[in-house]
Design a protein around this nucleic acid. Sequence first.
DNA 1: CGCAAGCAATTACACGTGTAAACATAAATT
DNA 2: AATTTATGTTTACACGTGTAATTGCTTGCG
Lengths: 123, 123
Amino acid sequence: MAISEAEAVVMDVLWREAPRTAEEILAEVGPAQGWQEGTVKSLLNRLLKKKAVHAERDGRRYLYTPLLAREQYVQQESKGLLDRLFGGRVAPLVVHFSEQRKLSKKDIAELRKLLKELDDEQH
Amino acid sequence: MAISEAEAVVMDVLWREAPRTAEEILAEVGPAQGWQEGTVKSLLNRLLKKKAVHAERDGRRYLYTPLLAREQYVQQESKGLLDRLFGGRVAPLVVHFSEQRKLSKKDIAELRKLLKELDDEQH
DNA sequence: CGCAAGCAATTACACGTGTAAACATAAATT
DNA sequence: AATTTATGTTTACACGTGTAATTGCTTGCG
C-alpha cells in the first residue's frame, strides 16, 4: 500500500535524520503542520504496518528509522506522475514547465550543465 | 476539491474529444478500466459537483464537456509534485531522472532543442 | 393508456486518510 | 505502595474514493 501525504511528512523528518523518537518528530513537524501527539503516533503506526519504518525500543521509548529510502519514494511518485500525464517521458514535462514560464534562470543553467555532463561521459 | 485518479480517467476522455455522452465515455474507458455503467455515471456526477465538467441536455441524454482545462490540471499536479519532492524546481527533477537512467536519447535530444530555443528567443 | 427500455440520480459500502480521543502500561515521584 | 507522568496502542469518526446496486423519471411501443 502506498504512503499517504501526511505519512510522507513524517518520513521526511526521518529522511533528514534518523533514528528519532516520536517526540522529536512531533517537535519538528507538529507546529508547522498543526498536529498533536496522537496524530504523529498514528502516522508512525501506519508507517510501521506498511513496513516503511522500523522501530527499535530504547528504554521507555522507540527510535524510528526509515526502511523505505527517499530515493525509492521519489522514484515511485515521479514515475507515477510522468506516466499519467506525460506519456512516461521527461522532456514533455520540462517543455510543459517551460511553456508555463516556470523555468528559472537557475533551472536553465543547471539543465545546460547536466546536458553537458551527459555529453562528456558519452565517451 | 481535487480531482481523483478515477475521475481524471474520465476527464481524459473528454479532453481528447468533447462533448460526449456517458455511453460514449463508458465505451471508451469501460473495457480497459473494467468499469460498469454506474461507475462512469457516478464519476461524472462527482465531476459535475466539482464543476470540472458541464452537462447539457440533449434529448434524453446529456452531453458532457470539460470545464477544467487539461493544462490547468496538469499544472496543478506537476506543481504539487515538484513542490513536495524537489523544492519546487524543475532541474532537480530532471537530475533525478538522469541519475536513475530514465532519460532516453529522445528526451536528451528534446531537452537540447528546448534549451537552444530558449537561448534563441533570449534576444 | 400502461408498461418496458433507457438514462440519470440516489444510495450503498468497504477501504484509506486525516485527525485525534481514550485506553493501557510501565517508569518516576511522593 | 499509590499516584502521576511519559509513551505507545487501540478505537473513533468524518470525509473522499472506487465501485457499483437500486431507485426514479421519461418516453417510445404495444
